[in-house]
């Protein structure tokens, strides 16, 4: 038995959503087309909604009674337990699309499995999130095809983006005591079980996009224990500064 495994599991999901939402929102007024400005913000809003639902549930499970803002704004870098992939900087549009393809394919498989969670509130979040995330995956897939099989430049940028993001995918499927306990309790899938479905979809899309699935011997990890990449501290500093400057007030 791992004490509080269900709470830690829910918090991991929530942090993944919040951090990815924040990164996507950074595109506002910067996207290559107006339609994509709308789309990226829309995806960011869905992810923010998912995070908020899961923070509320985490507060019940861990018994601390914290608010969603306590989780988002009052924890330090070492207390966030999102995976490293979601915190990677936006880079160019190719990097964002690759990150989005890799993340949304993982999240879709995860939400679908979570719809049968024994934890009622989590399964309710998952039911809505699965519908939303299937659109996120469609959006990333469409752009992966266009950019991979578009111009020489777009193809080259997609190759670089894949090379940069790919190493961070290994961590998505890591199993540990929390994941195994959550799996055993029926709270949610052990991420290791999601790999075949994820890999099948990614291989097919990259193939259609004339891109090659990379291999990497470097498989960075640590996000689930609060060990992040350097770029994450800057993101949190910006996100939390105003909230922390006025302790305890209502906004």
């Amino acid at each position: 038995m791992v004490a509080g495994a269900a709470a830690v599991y829910a918090l991991r999901l929530a942090d993944d959503c919040l951090v990815l939402s924040h990164r996507l929102a950074q595109w506002s007024s910067r996207a290559p087309t107006l339609e994509d400005d709308v789309a990226l913000t829309n995806i960011a809003l869905d992810l923010l909604g998912q995070a908020r639902g899961l923070y509320a549930r985490t507060a019940e499970l861990d018994g601390t009674g914290r608010s969603e803002d306590d989780y988002a704004f009052m924890r330090g870098e070492r207390e966030f337990i999102n995976c490293l992939l979601v915190e990677q900087e936006n880079g160019d549009f190719a990097a964002t699309i690759v990150r989005q393809l890799l993340c949304s394919t993982f999240q879709l498989a995860q939400w679908q499995a979570l719809t049968t969670s024994t934890d009622g509130p989590v399964s309710a979040v998952a039911a809505k999130a699965a519908k939303e995330t299937s659109y996120h995956r469609d959006h990333a897939t469409d752009w992966t095809l266009r950019l991979g099989d578009g111009t020489d430049e777009s193809h080259r940028r997609m190759e670089s983006a894949l090379a940069a993001m790919w190493p961070f995918t290994a961590e998505l499927f890591e199993s540990d005591a929390v994941a195994r306990e959550a799996g055993a309790l029926g709270v949610g899938p052990d991420p290791a079980t999601l790999r075949p479905e994820w890999e099948g979809y990614i291989r097919r899309v990259l193939g259609d996009a004339t891109l090659v699935m990379p291999e990497s011997t470097w498989t960075p990890s640590g996000g689930r224990e609060g060990l992040h990449t350097e770029c994450f501290g800057y993101m949190l500093a910006e996100m939390q500064h105003l909230h922390r400057s006025f302790p305890g007030v209502t906004w």
């Binding site: 919040l18 924040h22 929102a25 950074q26 506002s28 923010l48 995070a51 908020r52 923070y55 969603e68 803002d69 988002a72 704004f73 910006e238 996100m239 500064h241 105003l242 909230h243 006025f246 906004w251």
Partner: peptide
């Protein structure tokens, strides 16, 4: 957007 003081 990146500095909004609450999630709401």
């Amino acid at each position: 957007i990146t500095r909004a003081p609450s999630l709401r």
